[in-house]
Design a protein around this nucleic acid. Sequence first.
RNA 1: GCUCAGAUGGUGGAACUGGUAGACACGCAGGACUUAAAAUCCUGUUCCCGUUAAGGGAGUGCGGGUUCGAUUCCCGCUCUGAGUACCA
Length: 951
Amino acid sequence: MDYQFKQIEKDWQKFWAENKTFKAEVDKSKPKFYVLDMFPYPSGAGLHVGHPLGYIASDIFARYKRLKGFNVLHPMGYDSFGLPAEQYAIQTGQHPAKTTEENINRYRQQLDNLGFSFDWSKEVRTSSPEYYKWTQWIFMQLFDSWYNKDTDKAEPISTLIAKLETIPSEQINAVCDEDVLSLLPSDWNAFSAEEKQAELLKYRLTFLKESTVNWCAALGTVLANDEVKDGFSERGGHPVEQKKMMQWSMRISAYAERLLQGLNDIDWPEPLKEMQRNWIGKSVGAMVRFGLEGVKGSVVGSRKTAGNGLQTSSFIEVFTTRVDTLYGVSFLVIAPEHELVASLTTPEQKADIDAYILATKKKSELDRMSDVKTVSGAFTGSYAINPLSGEKVPVWIADYVLAGYGTGAVMAVPSGDQRDYLFAKKFDLPILQILDSQKIDKEADPTKEGKYINSGIINGMGYQEATQTIISKLKELGMGYGKINYRMRDAIFGRQRYWGEPVPVYFKPARSAGGNGLPYLIKEEELPLLLPEVDKYLPTESGEPPLGRAKDWKYQDEYEYELSTMPGWAGSSWYWYRYMDAKNDEAFADIDKIVYWKDVDLYIGGNEHATGHLLYSRFWNKFLKDLGYVTEEEPFKKLINQGMIQGRSNFVYRVNDAEGKGTNQFVSYGLKEDYLTSALHVDVNIVENDVLDIEKFKASREEYANAEFILENGKYLCGSEVEKMSKSKFNVVNPDDLVERYGADTLRMYEMFLGPLEQSKPWNTNGIEGVFKFLRKFWKLFHDENFNFSVSDDAPSKVELKALHKIIKKVEDDIERFSFNTSVSSFMIAVNELTDLKCNKRAILQDLVIILSPYAPHICEELWQLLGNKAGTLSFVPYPVFNPEYLIENEFDYPVSINGKTKTNINLPLTLEPKEVEEIVLKEETITKYFDGKYPKKVIVVKGRIINIVL
RNA sequence: GCUCAGAUGGUGGAACUGGUAGACACGCAGGACUUAAAAUCCUGUUCCCGUUAAGGGAGUGCGGGUUCGAUUCCCGCUCUGAGUACCA
């Protein structure tokens, strides 16, 4: 029979499901390999052709590793909490659980269509209580932990309490809030339970923090930054205001350094690592205090905190990465929002400052960010004292200094910083050269080269020495210290939404009892804290999150629960562990299984998760490791970013009449210049190789039924353009349609054939025929002209073995460097060669079936069985062993180039040494004729590669 | 602005460590089979000059450089895509 992909694919998908072929169990006799795809969110639109790209690649890899003798864990599940389902629920009143379930079912069906070797027994869904029980459990562990900088890891809160009971809090080296109290053991021990709880909250790894949010009163909800456009909500265009709110936060900043260092030990794409490095934003520098003129007692007693320094009325503290330029400071700039602005402003300057603050406020709404060119600022009238030179420097405010970064104040060094330079020029402030090599006539020069001048105690020194000297001097004076700053902020861990994990926390005392309520964890055995039912998925009238609508939802019928839910990234920050032991009711995963599966060996997904999911997951992983629940410092050893598949839209050109009105005539792409036309999107599914299917087009819309066409060469050609894949552009290609037409094996191979996995590219179905033809050709190798299965047991010839071993090697090499597209080409070459050789020998074809099976598993299973093997064994059969002897050549067709330009070829035995080759070449008439009477200056012979003659 | 990635025929792309640029596939053109079409098969297909052929020349975004030899390495630029945004 001819290649009947529909029947074959259905049969084998059924076989794999029924026999649980890909179920992975702990098996210590085999090395493990964990292949993971990034968690999909099951959206209502279903899969389009771009989604499976990564899944196909990871499936090929997983199947290949099984053949290589690995015990492969290759699971799939759903990140099923999230906004779209909630939005849909608000619109339709349907419970998000219901629509989510429907979407998952559709996803599953589409995934099954493609023949993936997932172990479905391990499927997880973040929205199921059995799963989110453990998300809540991890939250509880975070709540019950603090970060000890001395041991450089998270520890149970009990070890902190033990310290507070015995030593002064100043000796505790913790990552904590800025406003922790300075306590002696006697103070602590005298605290009430509430006071202790309140203080501990400042140390916990998840804690309540006042945060600014985008509050939209009209929608009654908080919006994400990208939902806000120019101060108005993207949906509806309602005004959005900045509102302070108590929110759960995660102390990810405690892990900043480890998150940064860990990047050195993992095999991820460099751009992705770079993005994380930028996000973490480490800067090594120093804190410097500038005393304020006229204020006595420059340093006010206070402890150094983990925060960003502190401001008192007696000095301004700045963070700088160039403390060596301290002598070049000619003014200070503080943020307009800085708390000292009011007290520093002199009566004469008040009008200026007020006006500037007002202008900033207006601007910040719109284009404070986009307007980088304009220099603006205002003088406060006050002066600060340079701690080393003792010089008076004016204090200005300017909106280029951000209140939220560092200390909200900078020391301005116009000679070294371009922004400061422009500022100094504009307001006529001094620009002082501080390095002999500095060139500052036109712009700032941030060089570190040369020797310092005009710089007091560091005159004549180099950069390293100067920095050291200044920091020790500042320390000695109590006016500064070396400090490392991170840009990364603690992550907000709450959303005022319904469809997410409830936070397992209640507040005591209850509001009804008149308390303001401190958070307490519910008991572990009370997990999961189920998401309660609500009548509507909207905020309450008083502006509380939807959970405020739940009836009688109180802890012990008395205490209020936390009403916000966890953010989208909660469930996905640990899911790869759940796959190891998806049904466990006693633990998030059994420790023996965690010890065996360890970490993800290959993680494939899009790079939209670069700074969200991938950073939070690493954070939670490190935390779980600190507490001894998992073994690895980094969860994802090797990561590949698959490129985005863009849409490729097709257009038809409607002819317009003289007034520009549309007619019902359409002109082919190549002729459109002769007419007045407008381009209209046309559904790409009725276009093939840019040729429009006219009948389908006429049937697609009533108004086109009588359309007329101006053709070229009897065809209607469409124009094309690369755009986002979206319904409105009629360029969405559904994998189901292609599977229906060509089969899953063809689609799998075609998606790989399209180009390198990491590269973004527009989807174009042109060319899928080539892959389909290849599979038919492959099928024909095993069959005679009448499609009877026909395979010979004759011994293979040398050429046949060569073709086979070439592909064994090529595919092995390619797959290790994730170059799937070149493998597909090589398969085509191999099959073309074997077809030309009319090879139907079992000794060759059986191995070829194994090699191709990760790419086209269905057809290979079928042929494997036809070859007389036991059904299902193909998935675990040993991969053929490459034998280099079959590739050894005796002769080589040397290209001969004259001055680097290839002129001719000469066939010579490979046993010849370069010297011998040279002798032959110089006598060979077909070569010497190019010499033009000249004698070669030099002959380069690279054995088995090339001959180059220099004239 | 900064950081990163990329630019090769009509199209997707290949060339792995500096060694025959354009593999493989699509498309296109011509041919075979067919009453015809589809399907299938065969041949050709980087561009320019050369009627054909023989042959010659140019050629991997642009301009230089290193080298016997550069798509590959170095310097400078242009354009495209992604991320980030006054980060002190």
